[in-house]
Each structure stands twice: as structure tokens, then as C-alpha cells.
Design a protein around this nucleic acid. Structure first.
Lengths: 351, 351
DNA sequence: CTGAAAGCGCTTACAG
DNA sequence: CTGAAAGCGCTTACAG
């Protein structure tokens, strides 16, 4: 039932040499005669030998494997992030594994980290909400020695963190709305667990921008999005929420927690017969590829996702190589792409 | 630099018993006294022991791990597929790994399969275009014994295949357009490698439906989409293609290879000032969540993505348990969700 | 340049 | 009920 694989020993026996020799040939070790090496390499190729990492890793106590633990892998946001991670991992000789969590509960996260650690992966990146874990988990999983938390900066000091600058994103999104003359700026946010921490950071940027421009914050302009389903895309929930809010509150600017929910908000606003941006200007977050295709095209907070992924892996590898490093926090800078959802004349991009 | 993990031996030494005993306690083996068992379990818990799968797998020649190899993991299409896969894997005691390929070249695919096989995973699902591989790869990687090809039925007989029924999808999409009175039905397809085989199947469904309804196929109504970028979403490319075609050819129905490109097509049609569905009716494929939010909402080919993922894993596990099985092909049934892009009155769903 | 031998941390068949 | 010992397939320090 189980597949039989060819082993070094098989090859050694066929060639009448030792496994040490085969190993040296495969490793390109100089300490071997060219003839022997060629003979070995030829047979290895012929037989389609596939090395057993299980054995090798056990012996070396190292796997050269890292993992990315994430919820909602299908968010288009991750496309370029993962590309960056993959490239960086490859560059440093690591294999990148991806695990998608079904939910963000401490139980699921624990279960998964333990699964991965049993495989003795060298380190992991966690985009799931690591804060759902507690101190005993941090200790057991040695979070500090082998983990980079991804996507939020809350709270620092316990482990490495890398994140786009959520505070700044919230700040410049709001500032932009203020600069185009909006006074009643609402923020729409999600109640997704996954998003909670990022959200707070963005929200604080929003509050700060209002304050810096002497605009009072009104509780009723903070819209909490209805949950329409368990799905990753809450477009529908946002649509329903805004539809309702349009009847209840007055606002002329809307900062949406991300682009997907902005799509839903835009639908609701258009349906009501209001003009974007004339009546309500809308800003999203993440600058998804689709955002320049919708109508009106969406102004959004943007950042280099490929670089974010790449840097994350570099940071993890540094951590693995040097577990004694103090926990670090790295922010990826963000900017704003101005499109027609906030400025109706032809889109000038500013950063 | 490397993390030291606690081993069975450590625990055995602390307790003055053998590793065999620890092992039995952990496995819930009946052949052990309750006191010993409790003592062991307590210490294991306290120490936060994490089993070394590397050693265990090596000894057992089995990993209880399967992998999903895919390109463009961020396509929202995969959200539910992966959920289904994860649940099925869990149910049968397997861990699911996901590897995202940067491209679909034989080299990349080979490289990745070999990486995974070195880890001695028990089997894998490949959504990348496995047909880019050749017979020597099939042999080396024992594709037939441990792999399920995902998403296309072309060609069968060499390994297990599971796929939504692409032919039927193409057929009913086209049939629907015919039934609402369209005569000049175009098909828009992508040139993405990833899609090539699925595409052919859908295309053949399109051709068959035309034929069955005595409509002649016109070469100039087969639109090949421009590639706008390397990105997974070709919305922009589709937009450009249709914009151009609208000047060159006349058509009143459009079957799009998937929903994303349909979004681009719809933009182009609206921009030209034509009415959907009055002037041109549009059908997509995959029924992405976003498709009922756009305007007009998009008629699309749909199927149970969760079930597809779940069944795929079940099929793989059967294969692993019984490598001697003849290669099987399983089709997941597809239906059509009718929305406003083809029928303007309120959306009746039919399957 | 080549190889014998130990060891990574489990699991298992077997003896007591 | 408990444990000694072999072995999974590599890698490595060391001897020749």
C-alpha cells in the first residue's frame, strides 16, 4: 500500500560503494573522484531518486521549511503577498507552506501551529489573529523564537511584527476626505474577528485625522457592518448596512475598512440615487486590482504587497537564524491612490 | 540557534520509565497501568511536549499529510474549495498543505512536486496544469498512485481526475443564451495557460449547444482575450478586448470563460452605451460571490465548490489507500443561476 | 578518495 | 504491565 522509495542504500548496493559516497556525490562534495561522482549521479538520475527529507531533517534537526498561517487565503489581497513570500523563501533556500484556517478561534490556531511544529518547521508567519492565544501558548510554541505576526501592530514587545501602517492608512484616507471638503465623514468597519486589530489601528488614524483638522468625532458616524454570511467577502453585508444608514444618518464622506466592503457601500449609495463623489465620497483600503474597474473607480489606501510578503519572510529568517534578537516591529509604508470615487475629474495619483 | 525540543527520552528519564511506556501512554494504549499513564500525561502536558513527526513519519513511512498544488490561490473561487478540502482532510486524519505556484511551467511544477515528495507526503492534488508534465514525470512522481488532478477532464486514463463538468457548463450557458433568443453568440476566452484545458471543454460545450440548435459557429465570434498583465484577474484585459470587438463584430450574446472576465466585458458594453441584457446578454462562469453584487447582476454557471473540495480529498485518500485502483474520472454537476445580465425581470433561479 | 559507525527521535515486535 | 533493542534513511565526524 505505501510507496516504496529508492534509498541511498539501494544505490550504494547497486554500485558497490558506501552510502557516504553517494551522499558526497549528491552534495557535490569535492572529496570524491570525478568518475565515482558521475557514476552515482547518472544512476540517481536514471532511478529517479527522491531524497527523503524526513530522514535528512531528523538527522540535521532542521527542515528549511517555513509556514504561512492565514484565514481567508482567497482574499485577492494575498496574491502578491504570497508571491513575495515564495520568492524570498526560495532565495534563502526555504520551502513555504501555506495553511488556511477555517476560523480564527484559539483552538483552531493552536491546533494548526502544533501540527506545523510537529513537522519541525523552522518558523512560521501568522496572519490569523495571534492575539487570541495566551501566554502559555506563546511559551509552548516559542512564538518569540520562530514567529512573525503579520498584518497588525497590536501589541508589540512579545514577538516580531510586520504590518502595513494601518494607523497612517486610516489617517491619510480621512485626511483626503477632509481635503476634498467633506465634513461628515463616516467610517464603515467590519466585525470580523480576523480584522479586529487592524481595524482599531485604522480607526485611530481616522480619529486622529479628524482631530488634527478640528472636526468632532460623532459616534453615530461609526458604522458597524452587518454580517451577511460566513464568507470572506462582506460586500453584501456592507451593502445592507449602508442602505440602512442612508435612511438614518447624514454623511458626505465614507472611509471603508477595505475595498470589498466599499464595493457594497457604493452599490447602496448608487441605488439610493446619490452621486459619488458629489454627494458622498468613498475611500477603500487595500487597493485590490478590481478597484479600478468598478464604477466609479475606487480611491483606496495602497502599499507594496509583494514587498510586504518578501520582507516578512526575510524577517522570519533573521529571527530563525538569531532567536535572541529583541522583538521587532516593522511598518510598511502606505499611500493613497485617488480615483473617481473621491475626485470626479480624471484620476491623478498621489502618494 | 536551533530550538531544542523535549523528546520522549527526556520524559522517560525524568519518570524513570522506558520510552516505550511513554509512547503507549500517549497513544492511549490499553496495555499500561492507569497510574503510569496519568503520570506520563501530566508531565507531557506540563512540559508542553510536541511530538516529532519527522521521526514518527520516518519510522512509520507515512506522513498523513496531503498537499494541494495550485496556481492563483487567491482566486475567490478557491475559498470554498479549500474549506471542503480542509474539512475532509481533517475528517480522515490528514493535514492539508497548500502550495501556490508562481507559474505553470513544467519546471516549476516539477520542482514543487519533488519538494513535496521529499517530505514524503502521502499524496497530492494538483490544480496546476499537470499536462505540462511528461510521461517520465508521471513515472518518477508516481502520479498515478498518489495524485488527483483537479479542474479539468482532459485527458483521462492516466490518473485520477475530478472536475466540474466544463463541457456541460459551456453547453448550458450557451443554451440559455439561445433560449432567450440570441442568435449571434460570442465566446470570450482567456489565453492563460492555467485555463487552457478547462477552456477547451467549455468551448466544446458552446459548439455543441450551437449545433444542437442549428446555429452556425462563426470563427470571428470566438474572442481571444488580450493579456493585460501577469495578474490573476484579467478583468482589465477582457475590458480591452470587448471594447475592441464591439467596434468590429456584431453579437447579441456573450459567454465569458469566467466571472472575472465577464466583469470587464460588462464594463466595456456599458461604456459603449449598450444595454445589458437587451442589446447583449452576458453569461459568466464560477458564480463568484461578487457576481450578484455587480450591476447588472451576472448570470453564471455554478456548482458546489465545497463539495468539489471535499470529494477531491476523499478521492485522493481512496487512491492512497488503494494505489491499484484504475484511474477514475469524477464530474461535479453544474447548473446555471439566472440573473439580470441575461433576463431583466426579477431573478428567477433555475438549475 | 572511501567507508564504517553512530545517531537524529520515534515505533514496533517481542521477551519477560 | 514494562522495557530492551532494532530500525526508518539520512548525515557527519572520524579513521584509514
Amino acid at each position: 500500500m505505501r510507496k516504496k522509495y529508492i534509498t541511498l542504500k539501494d544505490i550504494a548496493n547497486m554500485l558497490g560503494v558506501s552510502t557516504t559516497t553517494i551522499h558526497k556525490a549528491l552534495k557535490g562534495h569535492p572529496d570524491i573522484s570525478p568518475e565515482t561522482r558521475d557514476k552515482v549521479l547518472k544512476l540517481v538520475e536514471e532511478l529517479g531518486y527522491i531524497k527523503n527529507d524526513t530522514a535528512s531533517n531528523l538527522r540535521r534537526s532542521q527542515s528549511n521549511t517555513i509556514a504561512f498561517i492565514v484565514t481567508g487565503i482567497s482574499n485577492p489581497f494575498y496574491e502578491l503577498v504570497i508571491k513575495g513570500m515564495t520568492h524570498a523563501a526560495e532565495k534563502y533556500g526555504y520551502v513555504l507552506l501555506i495553511t488556511n484556517l477555517i476560523n480564527n478561534s484559539a483552538k483552531t490556531i493552536r491546533h494548526n501551529i502544533e501540527n506545523l511544529l510537529r513537522k519541525r518547521i523552522d518558523g512560521f508567519i501568522i496572519a490569523a489573529n495571534i492575539l487570541n492565544l495566551d501566554d502559555s501558548d506563546y511559551k509552548k510554541f516559542r512564538i518569540r523564537e520562530s514567529c512573525v505576526a503579520f498584518g497588525t501592530v497590536f501589541p508589540s514587545g512579545k514577538f516580531d511584527i510586520i504590518s502595513p501602517d494601518n494607523f497612517k492608512g486610516g489617517y491619510i484616507a480621512t485626511k483626503h476626505l477632509i481635503e476634498i471638503g467633506r465634513k461628515k465623514i463616516a467610517m464603515l468597519h467590519s466585525t470580523n474577528f480576523e480584522s479586529e486589530k487592524k481595524l482599531k489601528e485604522r480607526f485611530q488614524g481616522y480619529i486622529k485625522a479628524l482631530k488634527d483638522h478640528s472636526i468632532e468625532f460623532h459616534e453615530e458616524l461609526l458604522f458597524v457592518q452587518k454580517l451577511s454570511s460566513e464568507k470572506a467577502y462582506d460586500t453584501q453585508g456592507a451593502y445592507l448596512t449602508i442602505k440602512e444608514k442612508l435612511e438614518e444618518v447624514e454623511f458626505d464622506g465614507l472611509f471603508c475598512y477595505n475595498d470589498e466592503i466599499a464595493y457594497g457601500a457604493i452599490e447602496a449609495i448608487k441605488e439610493k440615487g446619490l452621486k459619488i463623489p458629489k454627494d458622498i465620497a468613498v475611500v477603500g483600503y487595500d487597493d485590490l486590482e478590481f478597484s479600478h474597474m468598478i464604477s466609479p473607480s475606487l480611491t483606496s489606501i495602497t502599499f507594496d504587497k509583494y514587498k510586504l510578503g518578501y520582507k516578512t519572510v526575510e524577517m522570519l529568517i533573521e529571527r530563525i537564524k538569531n532567536p535572541e534578537l529583541e522583538p521587532r516591529t516593522e511598518l510598511i509604508d502606505v499611500g493613497i491612490v485617488v480615483r473617481k470615487s473621491t475626485v470626479s475629474e480624471e484620476g491623478k495619483n498621489e502618494f
